[in-house]
Amino acid sequence: MTEGRTEEVIKEKLEGRFGTNLSNWTIQRKGRLYVELPREVLVEVVQFAKEELGFDHLSTITGLDAGEHLELIYHLFAKGMLLNLKTKLPLSDPKVKTITQLFPGAEPYERELEDMLGATVEGLPPGRHYPLPEDFPPGQHPLRKGWKVSDAYPQEV
């Protein structure tokens, strides 16, 4: 399944299944594929990539504060290829569905999105914070661009 696969073939298969939902394709170089998609189809695309295209390893999830929205990048890996799925969450409603049913190892990555960026991951099993401490001021998310250390620890600055 993993042999003879090129970036173009992966692109074609994903487009064949999800069509116009996918946009802004970038084939940066061999083995580096980027694509944007709406959050509504995210879980479906991840499942398709895992089950049909052989992307059976989730390397990590990157989150970043892009000003008007949060951007999430799901880095899926199959032999020789990193598929980077990008999705945007509006700041007013930063919700996304969990993918832990597909990749149980995603749990710490998703908790990190909640703690560090203030995204809401729906369906994440109840558990403790990661990586922030339990007594961290609620509603503060260090990786938001406007956040400063003094917001959480005024005595230290």
Partner: peptide, 29 residues
């Protein structure tokens, strides 16, 4: 094990975002 970094640049001398996922985190599960 697998170490993965994501870097986004923005035209300045500082990065827009640096993401680090060290292998131990992937193994803790």
């Amino acid at each position: 094990g697998e170490d993965i970094h994501y870097v986004r640049t923005n035209g300045t001398e500082k990065p827009e975002r640096v993401k680090v996922r060290a292998p131990t985190l992937a193994n803790f599960s």
